[in-house]
Design a protein around this nucleic acid. Structure first.
Lengths: 216, 216
DNA sequence: TAGGATTTATACCGGCAAGTATAATCGCGG
DNA sequence: CCGCGATTATACTTGCCGGTATAAATCCTA
């Protein structure tokens, strides 16, 4: 049994590594299933079936369903946080850094973990887990606000309410998870380009030659 | 029993009307409970308890849990659709109409039904119900895109990808449902003002005196 | 090739919550 | 004040699904 796809058909080499791979495969399968059917409408049997395995096997790699969701959250949010980290290190204006974050953000949201990050309920996690996720989310939010403030300071971003601007940008990006599907016509980076154009220039036509925003 | 709040304590006048009121109260209670705990984490007993009533009573007004969710969807989406309708009738530029829609949209999203509209899963509805909701959502989406295209035609909106602009705007607005709470410091219209400022002018500083966007 | 650790499957438990008989009660018209 | 429809409660059934006890197979090591 155990047909192609999923590391179960590849007879092993070293233990440790195989175990990691399998665990990752479980998380990924969970992420996809959640995206497809929603967290509560996905049974562990469903996930197991995709991997050509049975439910108890899952428990060998993961302690429970909640943890699967948690790991999905973490994986996705980690990617966004990474983008924020890179931006922090970069040597550029606030606006340029913000644009870079938007690119990374869009990439993360369109990944398999996008759904979990955006649509899964904190309520479905234990208070401890939920708190950790909230902290991660808040950190990202603060990073974005900081970039906006920086941009305002260095003159690359027009004055405005940093908190609301951050919410608007993050909201637009998060929402991608609701309409994006792999077979969609646009790639993540194409979407990011369109969004950046809109974020930077706004709806109102610019008077003179102005400041569109393809990346550096 | 049956303490203050909820029409159950107000002894009736005419039957028909009372029944409607009670039904509405059930839907509203459901919406609030869903927002608080999530759809799947809310039992019908929970909802009944809030109304100081028992589960079978709920079934007297509503055929099942799914229908509660459906009605919540409908109520919320109806408000947005109404805003779109008003905009269609208005005599104004595409941009001004779009701004008006943003105001109504923000109002709807911050209502008790905001959560259901935005965060509830289509998956939790039967295929028929789900299809009807999808149709409503799609209509709103098309309305917004149309306004953007109009704005581009009449010169009130800069050229761009109407579909992506619509997604970005709707996404930013929908996301309000994730962070907004009634006790929040900002009213819906204050949020709308900030968002409109950002949507219209974008991040990049305007060169000369330009075009902010308080409504007509 | 024996033995211990690792990995997986079979078969089950228990709880929760949606939904449903069934029957009691309420309030108005006659 | 009688009775009939409208309304509500008590108490139950039912199915699903997360989680687990147990045992079997597999695989490396010596």
């Amino acid at each position: 049994m155990t047909r192609p796809s999923s590391p179960w058909n590849v007879p092993p080499a070293d233990r440790e590594r195989q175990r990691e791979l399998k665990r990752d495969a479980v998380i990924l399968a969970a992420a996809r299933a959640f995206r497809e059917r929603g967290y509560h409408n996905t049974s562990l049997d469903d996930i197991a079936a995709v991997l050509h395995v049975t439910k108890p096997t899952l428990y060998y790699y993961v302690s429970n369903k909640e943890q699967m969701l948690f790991e999905c959250f973490r994986e996705g949010l980690g990617r966004i946080a990474a983008a924020c980290g890179e931006a922090r290190d970069a040597n550029a204006s606030g606006r340029e850094r913000l644009i870079a974050v938007v690119r990374g953000y869009a990439e993360a949201i369109t990944s398999d973990f996008g759904w979990c990050m955006v649509r899964a309920e904190d309520q479905d996690l234990s208070p401890q887990m939920s708190a950790r996720i909230k902290a991660l989310k808040s950190e990202i939010d603060q990073d974005i606000r900081r970039l906006v403030r920086q941009g305002i300071s260095d003159g690359s971003i027009a004055a405005g309410d940093p908190k609301m601007v951050a919410f608007a940008i993050a909201g637009a990006l998060n929402w991608i998870a609701h309409w994006y599907r792999d077979d969609a016509s646009l790639s993540a980076s194409a979407i990011a380009d369109r969004f950046i154009e809109f974020f930077v220039n706004g709806l109102a036509p610019r008077v003179s030659g102005a400041t569109a925003g393809k990346s550096p």
